[in-house]
């Protein structure tokens, strides 16, 4: 194994260029190049991804029909609750909450390489998608838009180390910060040791921070660990979304927002 000086130099150059690129990921020009490349690849990815969905489409139609019926019933119940809520808000003089526009999207690429967890969707800037828009599906919060091309966008999933969200224990209204635990669970942090929390409690977004609407389901508490020396509990949360089966998602965009 004898490596020439020229080969060492080429190796050094490759490492240097890679590190420079890694260090400039948030640079505007690099983001622009990534967004342009993303748009270019989106058409091809969409065509290939549609191939894999053909055999599953009949099954999907049946599942969606059943889901549709269930949602119609649920919708009727919510409509009643919304009417009641409006009346009560008027009584209390609350300001009308800001509304979100829903942009439906199809997953056209996934990356689960090692610890990197991202998906690419088939909607982008021309459809109204902006960086940091929340991404959801019927089960709950999927992630947040990270990079936006013209017709596609890359989404950081909840199970990615770059993801953090202000959360709330639905039953007891205790606040915390939810982030990735390093495995298949999330970690709810900053919850006081004396807080009331139990296995099976539902965790939702708290709306604090202004990026995510309040009340989107994040997951269920599966494990609570208490350290007598700590003033906080460590709570493990199983995400509500099954990330291995993501096909359709919705991007939420605050109406009138121009980030």
């Amino acid at each position: 194994m004898s490596v020439t000086v020229r080969e060492w130099a080429a190796f050094g150059l490759a490492l240097f260029l890679s590190l420079v690129l890694l260090a400039s990921n948030e640079h505007r020009q690099v983001q622009f190049i990534r967004a342009t490349a993303l748009s270019g690849a989106a058409t091809l990815n969409a065509a290939l991804t549609s191939l894999r969905s053909i055999p599953a489409s009949k099954k999907t139609i049946r599942r969606l029909s059943a889901e549709n019926a269930r949602l119609l019933l649920e919708n009727a119940r919510y409509r009643e609750a919304a009417l009641e809520n409006r009346r009560l808000r008027q009584l209390l003089g609350f300001r009308r909450r800001s509304k979100y526009e829903v942009i439906p999207a199809q997953v056209i690429a996934k990356s689960l390489e090692g610890a990197v967890r991202t998906i690419t969707v088939d909607v982008g800037a021309l459809d109204g998608v902006r960086k940091d828009d929340p991404v959801v599906n019927a089960s709950g919060l999927v992630g947040r838009v990270y990079l936006v091309g013209k017709h596609s966008a890359t989404v950081h999933l909840l199970l990615d180390r770059n993801f953090k969200v202000a959360a709330l224990i639905e039953r007891t209204r205790v606040n915390g910060i939810l982030s990735w635990s390093g495995g298949e669970y999330c970690l709810l942090e900053d919850v006081p040791a004396r807080a009331d929390v139990g296995i099976g409690d539902v965790i939702v977004t708290s709306g604090l921070g202004g990026i995510y609407p309040k009340g989107i389901r994040l997951g269920l508490v599966v494990e609570i660990s208490e350290d007598v020396t700590s003033i906080f509990k460590t709570i493990f949360v199983r995400p509500a979304v099954d990330f291995s089966r993501l096909e359709e998602v919705a991007i939420l965009r605050r109406q009138g927002s121009e980030r």
Binding site: M1, S2, V3, E7, F11, A14, L15, L17, S18, L19, V20, L21, L22, A23, N25, V30, I33, R34, A37, L38, A41, N45, A109, S111, E113, V116, T118, I119, T120, Y146, L147, T154, V155, H156
Partner: peptide
Amino acid sequence: LLAGSPLGLSSLSLSVAAFLVGAVSR
């Protein structure tokens, strides 16, 4: 670019892997 991982991360890792394998098998 395709996977949405940080730009430069795969090129760094693949360059090291290729250099090692190239050197061992030369």
